[in-house]
Design a protein around this nucleic acid. Structure first.
Lengths: 336, 336
DNA sequence: TGCAAAAATGTAATCGATTACAAATCGAAA
DNA sequence: TTTCGATTTGTAATCGATTACATTTTTGCA
């Protein structure tokens, strides 16, 4: 079917325009070095022949790919996918394409990606979850890399993140101001730096207001809806139940509200519930969710911009960006 | 910092193993052609030197990239992101990497991607939204391409899709069986093939059961939560309000439920509401959402597998796959 | 007009693999 | 031990661009 016709190469264009291949190459890459008249002739020939540069050849010669690899624990996760959008949107106008590796949360696979750089497949790395990077850090030596969402302790890697601690503290304080005294916390995975920061914020707020940190009010979780449900069930079984639940992401907050409903209670009437992230469905939830808004696309955009700077040898304005988050009070919490 | 040490190349390995570069190349690509003893020596040398093949060089020589481009209208959309996950999961073990182009729903950009193939940047294309492809179809001649989610009418392009019409019909029939008689439909964008099919299913079901198709019960929408709210508002303002609302995706169904709540009504007590997609948050919604479950990761996986077959010159088992969908009855609908 | 410097263009080496073809080695049968 | 065919390995051309360096053209100014 597809009569596989020969793609025109740079020689074809050169011949047609009556110039050398060097001139064609220059016209395409550095037009200002070429006399306008010649330039026009070349562009004309390009159009006539339908020439498209062979990327592999250029990559080989220049050892640059104009591609960036994003290592993502889970593309389908609503959080990461929005960060990716910010990345994609920034990379495109800068002339980079985006390669995505979904590691499926598998530590093994997260390691592989140093090879992407070494094989000359990409110019830089964007790590959406640094958890395991510490192991790979040595191997990355030299490869431009930016870490997102999670700071990698002690790695010195440039990164972009939300001010998680401050945000969690602010949210907890809002709950305290609303008159809540027994505020439960539903945690993320223990190894998660992000969880660590949020918990620290929660604790700080309690301390600052002279409230005790009651260990029975802190429940483990893993960011899933189900985990939120389980945690809420456990909390409701306590002799003295909490008057508020702060889940460290929105999915768990929704789970908690479901559990309340299932138990014949209601948020915010009986227990206030707050989340973290402000995912798309938080505002549409029933009740709409009080939460912390993170600028997810901006995180992606800033990280991508920083990476491009690194790749192109420019000194990025900053190697560490912390974006402020915003408290969004909605219907799932209420003053006591 | 990064002492940019020379990456070993195939000659280094060859020298170290005492063989020619041809043998090294063969050992890596077609080990069975090489005598076991030689093979071991080469592998040893590879390990010692830390050799990693230069992908650009191989691409140039073989004019194959082992990369695939997915053209996505919006990565951050929960629907697409899950399809992407299926794609990524299938591509990886097959040895392909995934490049993502987020077109931001911009017709202009969807066009650009034929160039990706022509520039030799990828071996094939996965189109998650064929809407505009018709325009580009000519240019793709020869490039392996699979369309997902939406069949591209008259393109003859291989594709994978959900049996939207059948599923929408089945859902509508379930609502009828539950005793609903005034079933409203909240549509997707008019140009959308997917919307077209779902609406056809809705209409078929009404006809089959002798129910009239009441134009005032069909409201426009664009798949957003907000559109669902607006549609429901309009429907509630009708002299005779519907007893069920079938929104052609979950986000709009959630919007409709919000609107009901805002109007002091409730789903399913006053109006039943059904969605389509069964996104992650459908089960966690309040009330949990009756919807149509599409196997999103499977759509992605099947399409990716088909594309790999096409790229590698194998005849795919089928050029048109329609995956059945499953009706999931939950709490947002109730028998009248 | 003549001449030096600047600008524009051309020649050809180069990036690092793959692979057609040739050469060498091996093994089995006679 | 030959000998022929099958296996294994090596040599070197090749993929299509970029770019250092050489050469030509243009420009500005005396």
């Amino acid at each position: 079917m597809g009569e596989r016709l020969q793609r025109p190469k740079i020689d074809d264009v050169a011949r047609r325009a009556g110039v050398s291949t060097a001139t064609v190459s220059r016209t395409l890459a550095n037009p200002e070095q070429v006399k306008p008249k010649t330039r026009d002739a070349v562009m004309q020939a390009v159009r006539e022949t339908g020439y498209v540069l062979n990327v592999a050849a250029r990559n080989l010669r220049t050892s640059r790919t104009h591609a960036v690899l994003a290592v993502v624990p889970d593309v389908s996760n609503i959080f990461f996918s929005q960060v990716l959008q910010g990345i994609a949107a920034t990379l495109r106008p800068a002339g980079y394409s985006l390669i995505i590796a979904d590691t499926g949360n598998d530590p093994e696979r997260e390691r592989d990606h140093a090879d992407f750089v070494r094989a000359g497949r990409v110019d830089g790395l964007l790590l959406l979850n640094g958890r395991l990077l510490s192991a790979a850090t040595g191997e990355l030596a030299g490869a431009p890399t930016v870490s997102l969402c999670e700071r990698i302790p002690g790695s010195g890697l440039p990164h972009v993140e939300t001010a998680n601690r401050e945000a969690a503290r602010a949210m907890t304080e809002r709950l305290i101001e609303q008159g809540h005294r027994r505020i439960a916390y539903v945690a993320g995975p223990a190894a998660n730096v992000l969880e660590h920061d949020r918990f620290a914020g929660y604790r700080e707020a309690l301390e600052a207001h002279g409230l005790p940190l009651d260990a029975s009010l802190v429940r483990p979780g893993d960011f899933s809806i189900r985990a939120g449900e389980d945690a809420a069930h456990a909390l409701l079984a306590l002799p003295a139940r909490p008057d508020a639940i702060f889940a460290c992401n929105d999915a768990m907050a929704m789970g908690a509200i479901r559990a309340l409903t299932a138990a014949g209670l209601s948020a915010p009437r009986d227990v206030s519930v707050a989340g973290f992230d402000d995912i798309e469905f938080a505002a549409a939830y029933n009740p709409s969710l009080t939460t912390v808004r993170q600028a997810r696309t901006e995180i992606g955009a800033r990280a991508a911009a920083m990476l491009v700077d690194l790749i192109e040898g420019r000194q990025p304005a900053s190697r560490e960006i912390r974006l402020p988050a915003e408290i969004v009070m909605r219907d799932s919490t209420r003053a006591r």
